[in-house]
Design a binder for these strands. Structure first.
Lengths: 245, 245
DNA sequence: TCTGCAATTTCTGTATACTAATTTAGCTGC
DNA sequence: GCAGCTAAATTAGTATACAGAAATTGCAGA
């Protein structure tokens, strides 16, 4: 595993959290020196952090311009969900294969927390725990690489939800997680895989709001539409949304 | 996509090639300044290159010690193959779904090249083309993320072969690739997936079977070869081949 | 000859300086 | 007022300097 320097890791984690919690909105500029100032580190280290975030698909970074919080396109979102479905099905398959009763307790515990958070309308915690459930499942697969990939995919899904999802959609239904545990506990591997498949299908549908047809849900597209009515000169780079300076 | 600087990309590609072609053996130390000298760049850039290679699992990098060409453990090798199997099955599924006759020509062409290289004992090209076939398949899936992941996995498999495989075994059997094309052409999606599954099972068995032998190589010599394209454009200064043990 | 410690040489970690490109702000003339 | 140009301010690209940790070497004592 990579542990180049704790400081890099700290900043990386902090920024990742800020992005997936939507404290930093997609499109927000991330100048190196501003970040460096915040975390009391030089641009050299900030650069490493941004490189990691870019590799994870959480920031867009073009050659000579300021990095920004990523704005996934609809096509990218589809790709992410497609790969996630395949890998998470595999994860369930592996978990079923090496199933132990203790696993059920683990997952049940997460489920209960999730339920409570949902009950008290704590959206931030709720969203976080929904991801946590899937991540824990990946860990239980016993395949470290699979876990790494799924962590990345689950994180990106959070970002996708921020761009395409409607404001108050919770991405995971508790009953679906519950059904999965039941199937696993019963030793029904194929059933569990099927449940995960349909569950992720449902998550994707909830997240993307539309079918597989092209849908102009991107913030930039919407804004450019409105901007076009006012001034018909900005055709290429319309997204000039909130950023802090 | 990331294109921070062509120079970084060039060095990255060169090192990756050197590693998967086993010109740099697993465990070989990769000091930043030696590499920087070879590619005529400062350690700052070398660092970025090494970070990328580490993220791909091609080099091991611990906090305060010199990076080395990765030496995958057996457990890691298993994980890589497991994930690769899952993703490559998905890729085949997708390719089958959007199948077009032109795809067959593409793949056939690669297969033919592969066959020729095999016939004339050109091992370097042969190994490269075997990977290329799988990579092309991933591209035809139309899912860019899946392609990225598979590129990484296929590359790592080459490295795994270097560590665990017998010295010069070719990892893919041509007939298996051929059978896959036949199934796809016939529109037999499930059959194609099954073939891919068993094919990768065979690849894994071949890869994880067998012993290893030792062969020393001077880092400077190897790199000067791979960096030739780069240094040619630089000032014609006598590149001193650093002593490596 | 072997072992352990100290001196020394290699390296990496990180900040900073300097350059070049990109964006922004001001102009100027239509 | 608006298009287009130029100057000024931001901001990324890259090299380099320097501090400090690891590896290596050399030497003394057993």
């Amino acid at each position: 595993m990579a542990r180049p320097s704790p400081r890099i890791e700290i900043a990386h984690e902090a920024l990742r959290q800020a992005i997936i919690e939507q404290a930093l909105k997609p499109g927000t500029k991330l100048p190196e020196d501003v970040i460096g100032e915040q975390f009391a580190m030089s641009r050299t280290l900030v650069r490493a952090v941004l490189a990691k975030l870019e590799a994870e698909g959480l920031v867009d970074a073009n050659p000579k311009r300021t990095a920004t919080v990523a704005q996934p396109t609809l096509a990218e979102a589809r790709d992410v969900f497609e790969v996630r479905r395949a890998l998470e099905a595999e994860a369930v398959r592996l978990v079923a294969k090496r199933w132990q009763p203790a696993f059920a307790d683990e997952l049940d515990s997460l489920l209960r927390q999730e339920d409570e958070a949902r009950a008290r309308q704590d959206e931030r915690v709720s969203i976080h725990l929904a991801g946590e459930f899937h991540l824990r499942l990946a860990q239980l697969s016993g395949n470290a690489l699979l876990e790494r990939y799924l962590r990345e995919l689950i994180t990106r899904c959070s970002l996708i939800l921020a761009v395409f999802g409607r404001p108050h959609s919770s991405d995971c239904a508790i009953e679906e997680h519950s059904a999965l545990i039941t199937a696993l506990r019963a030793g029904d591997a194929d059933g569990a895989v099927a449940i995960m498949h349909s569950h992720l299908g449902a998550v994707e549908r909830r997240a993307l709001l539309g079918g597989d047809d092209e849908k102009p849900a991107a913030l930039g597209d919407v804004l450019s539409h409105y901007a076009a009515a006012v001034t018909a000169r900005q055709t290429t780079k319309p997204s000039k949304t909130a950023n802090q300076k």
